[in-house]
Design a protein around this nucleic acid. Structure first.
Lengths: 215, 215
DNA sequence: TCTTAATGTAATCGGTGATTACATTCGCGG
DNA sequence: CCGCGAATGTAATCACCGATTACATTAAGA
């Protein structure tokens, strides 16, 4: 046996079934980070590695840095977000304003039931804004959807005269603001009942639509 | 000279004017942290200490932990925020809806010109929510102000029939959402001109008020 | 099979929040 | 005026984190 004094390289095959190669680390790390976020904890690469039962340096074989991991997490979350909204829209009425309402409702429901994911998606604090191609594309399509609904509504004469772009941004701000108020703890008291907040979200959306719709 | 081998305790009085006791550390640390935030950097206790030309442990004589420092920073920022809104309200018209508009405008202008401060105030990510008595009190008073305006407007028959609480929350969500969209980088393209965003903010507020006002 | 690239490990670095023991100074009571 | 205790700053240290590097192990294809 030639010079071989480093460590204990005997590939131990005892009880521990996990092979040297994890086989699925990237995916498992993303899920672990997603889980971490869900639990409200700070997402650290080390903790994700710990949960994957892997060394602290291993994740950097799959992600150049922490930001890249967070971007991957955001992509996954955004995928689910978009899927839920499109599903809600699929079984929504045909009227543009009804669809607009269903859109806002689905948006807020998801944001309030997946606060940590929504936070990662929307904040841009966890990874550089525009760092992910897929993320910005998905987001742009979602925005385009709402613009289309408003354009349809205007074409059918359902809206009071107003700048469409302005309506679109106000609607986004309203819904985004409500979601973030929930995230940031601005609903302290009556938030004991999550359903109460969702009811309020519905009311706020209806108020907005009543404000832009032709009387 | 008795046993005295520790360090070099000779109180050096050479060129360096700063006395052992800083005299004003707490205040200087808050300002340094505020400055740090303004520069967009992560606010770390060590960096604040560095800027105050003081050892890394010194800040902990004035703040039990990082959170407490951030809370103090938030209190200072909130004080300025509230002062600006009250100033704007002082020279606003008497009509409730005009005052409501002035309120929203002052809110958004400050938030967009002091993004880092607004972030620290509103997010609750830098210190425990409700950890500061003053902060929650100030905030409650600000909210009470807006509620009063809406109540006045309703009493004067200026509003379309709607739940006041609902209007109030929608208004807060709208304005908070717009401010956060700006913070979180949701205004990428046409944001080259800051005045452009402020113009849009004005338009969004007007749209909202037109939506709740009696036609 | 055997060579090479992919993947995981171990050790290490600099930065950070936090704690502790110690040094220095201020301010108040004698 | 003195001196003692409280307040305040320093130095050293710890654990954790992101990141890098050298190395070990394995999978996969020529």
């Amino acid at each position: 046996m030639p010079t071989r004094q480093t460590s204990k390289p005997r590939s131990r095959r005892t009880a521990e079934a996990r092979p040297y190669h994890h086989g699925n680390l990237r995916r498992v790390l993303i899920d672990a980070a997603l889980q971490l976020a869900t639990e409200g904890a700070e997402v650290s690469v080390r903790e994700a590695a710990r949960r994957a039962a892997v060394s602290p340096g291993a994740p950097f074989r799959h992600f150049p840095n922490r930001e890249a991991l967070m971007a991957a997490v955001a992509e996954e979350a955004q995928r689910r977000f978009r899927a839920e909204i499109e599903a809600a829209l699929r079984e929504a009425p045909a009227s543009p304003l009804d669809r607009f309402r269903a859109y806002g409702l689905a948006y807020l429901r998801w944001a309030m039931r997946n606060p940590a994911h929504f936070e990662i998606i929307s904040t841009g604090r966890y990874f550089a804004h525009g760092s992910s191609e897929e993320l910005t594309r998905d987001n742009a399509e979602l925005i385009g959807l709402s613009e289309q609904m408003l354009a349809d509504a205007a074409a059918q004469g359902l809206l009071r005269p107003a700048d469409l772009k302005r309506i679109q941004i106000a609607g986004r701000a309203l819904v985004y603001g409500f979601a973030r108020m929930n995230l940031d703890g601005h609903f302290p008291r009556w938030s004991v009942e999550a359903s109460e907040i969702e009811r309020m979200a519905e009311g706020v959306i209806d108020l907005f639509i009543a404000g832009i719709a032709k009387p």
